[in-house]
Design a protein around this nucleic acid. Structure first.
Length: 561
RNA sequence: UGCCCCAUAGUGUAAUUGGCAACACGUCUGACUCUGGAUCAGAAGACUUCAGGUUCGACCCCUGAUGGGGCAGCCA
């Protein structure tokens, strides 16, 4: 590893993590921005944040942290028709939860509207912007095509005085929506569409969630974004690939203004298999009730993952694992699942829970006793707890098979299996109902095989989990599967038709050991042999615990719970 | 059709011109185990999209081709 020599008072040493770090290293070396590093995350408050945003947040905040620079949270709230305070609130919560420290700098593009207006006036005075009377259709018609240049607007050569007057009257509200725009005067023949006299301001008579009705003209993204970055002293303005073609315009505006000029860098957005990642589609899933809400545990939103039981550490680690590059890719969901399993394995309290109970009677056992169970084998300091054992138990339906396939080493007729933390039992009798369904098992236990007694010389292949019937806590457990049946639903014409009809299974009569009683919303557990589960924040009540399955345990046998 | 960007194992990334192309996930073995988890040991899997060129030497530089992505909102 080569150390980066940095004479800065904030020395930074690291191996470049990705191409953006290389660019920044170079900029520090040449002192393009002095030796400062200042990034930002600029969401539009028109939806909830998703895991793709998490990637961007981790990238931007990570850079600020690694270079001992600053990181801003800034709302790009330039379109009053789509934005809402609810989204602002959720975004602030999600960014904080992820642990990206913006040092209380919650900034808003709308706070810069006055300054942007002044700069627009400057551009008009420099002859670089003009008021255009063409309507939307006319502008589209004169913009040209992929192969043909556009045509100059008939209003392109208005005098500075006329432009100034018209622009002021636009602001005053003298014109209807869409009647006039302010356009940059660049080049209608440019091969880059963004340079064909792009629109800087449009008339929109709408109430802004923060500015109320003080404005009826709103800046477009291209005009506003560089201004915002410049005003905040951002050094590296990191965005996704689709803005690559906009960079010449970003540069043109800032150069024309002659103001501080940050560097825009683009990277590939995250695509995750078996889900969709565009806000438009996520909004549609919510609006059309294909899911519960933005925080439905099946949603790839940050709030969805939080509710499902993901931790910020796991998501941050995931962002680290997938890296950053410029080629568009489809990341396999298994990388995300690894990140959360890795975290929860080390940190989650273990507990025994039976999802589909099958009653077991230990015919030669009387009374009740308390057994000792380890809370987390990966974390000895977590200690142990007590688990009640008695004559009547529940085991998992799938842990018994009357006619087992080869390799099945759980309970079978006349077979033995260990009850975890308890005794080895033997299946003596299988009881069925009229339809032939197994409804109860009669077993005997071997009192010399008690866990931890050291007395057992007996070895069995299988260990299964169980819950004492009298002491069991009833709970609802919600099992989630991928939301879509195809790897890349976003690429499908009929993507809604690819929704997995079995993405949610609700189990209403799960049995859990009594330790679970005091669980609070968002508490995370490993249900032994089944997976990781998290107390739901929405459906859990004082009377009933509801769990979301975060992710299953890895399983080399192939059971399906 | 015009412009811009990209191209490395199944997946995501690395290798800033050189001894067998690395890491993580996933997959497969084996060991261990009172979680078919974890852990440990190991394996398979890439002629670095193709074709030329520069060079003693190219994943890396150049040219072309092919493939993929983006752009014709008064969205961001």
């Amino acid at each position: 590893m080569e150390e980066i020599k940095n004479t800065n008072e904030n020395p930074v040493e690291h191996k470049p993590k990705n191409f953006i770090y290389e660019i920044i290293d170079e900029d520090i070396k040449t002192e393009k921005f002095g030796k400062q590093v200042h990034t930002r995350f600029p969401p539009e408050p028109n939806g909830y944040l998703h895991i793709g945003h998490a990637k961007s947040i981790c990238l931007n905040y990570g850079i600020a942290r690694d270079y001992k620079g600053k990181f801003n949270l800034r709302f790009d709230d330039t379109n009053p028709e789509k934005e809402e305070q609810e989204y602002v609130d959720s975004i602030v919560e999600d960014v904080k939860w992820l642990g990206a420290d913006f040092e209380e700098r919650i900034l808003y593009a709308s706070d810069y509207f006055e300054q942007m207006y002044k700069w627009a006036v400057e551009l008009i005075k420099k002859g670089k912007a003009y008021v255009c009377d063409l309507n939307a259709d006319e502008i589209r018609a004169t913009r040209g095509t992929l192969t043909e240049p556009g045509k100059d607007s008939p209003y392109r050569n208005r005098t500075v005085e006329e432009n100034l007057d018209l622009f002021e009257r636009m602001r005053k509200g003298e014109f209807e929506n869409g009647a006039k725009t302010l356009r940059a005067k660049i080049d209608m023949a440019s091969p880059n569409f963004n340079m064909r006299d792009p629109i800087m301001y449009r008339v929109v008579h709408a109430e802004h969630h923060r500015q109320g009705n003080s404005w009826c003209i709103y800046p477009t993204y291209d005009w506003a974004h560089g201004n915002e970055d410049s005003l905040e002293g951002i050094t590296h303005s990191i965005c996704t690939l689709e803005f690559e073609n906009h960079r010449p315009l970003y540069d043109w505006f800032l150069d024309s203004l002659g103001v501080y000029h940050p560097k825009q860098i683009e990277f590939a957005r995250l695509n995750l298999s078996y889900t969709v990642m565009s806000k438009r589609r996520l909004l549609q899933l919510v609006k059309e009730k294909h899911v519960d809400d933005w925080d439905d545990p099946r949603m790839p939103t940050i709030s969805g993952y939080r509710r499902r039981g993901y931790t910020p550490e796991a998501i941050r680690n995931f962002a680290e694992i997938i890296g950053v590059a410029k080629r568009d890719a489809l990341t396999d969901i298994s990388l995300l699942e690894f990140a959360i399993r890795d975290d929860l394995n080390k940190n989650a309290q273990r507990v025994m829970a039976v999802l589909r109970p099958l009653k077991v009677v230990i015919t030669n056992y009387e009374g009740e006793e308390n057994l000792d169970a380890v809370n987390n084998p990966e974390k000895p300091e977590a200690g142990s707890r007590t688990v009640p054992f008695s004559k009547e138990l529940f085991i998992e339906e799938s842990d018994f098979m009357e006619d087992p396939p080869k390799g099945f080493h759980r309970l079978v007729p006349a077979g033995e299996v260990r009850l975890r933390y308890a005794y080895i039992i033997k299946c003596e009798e299988v009881i069925k109902d009229a339809t032939g369904k197994v409804i109860e098992l009669h077993c005997t236990y071997d009192k010399d095989t008690k866990s931890g007694s050291g007395a057992s010389t007996k070895k069995v292949k299988g260990v299964i989990h169980w819950v004492s019937a009298n002491n069991a806590v009833d709970a609802e457990v919600r099992l989630y599967d991928r939301l879509f049946t195809v790897e890349n639903p976003g690429a499908e014409e009929d993507w809604l038709g690819k929704i997995n009809p079995n993405s949610l299974e609700v189990i209403s009569d799960a049995k859990i050991e009594p330790f679970i009683k005091n669980a609070k919303p968002l508490d995370k557990f490993q249900f032994e042999r089944l997976g990781y589960f998290c107390v739901d924040t929405k459906y859990t009540t004082a009377e009933k615990l509801v769990f979301n399955r975060t992710v299953t345990l890895k399983d080399s046998w192939g059971k399906k719970s």
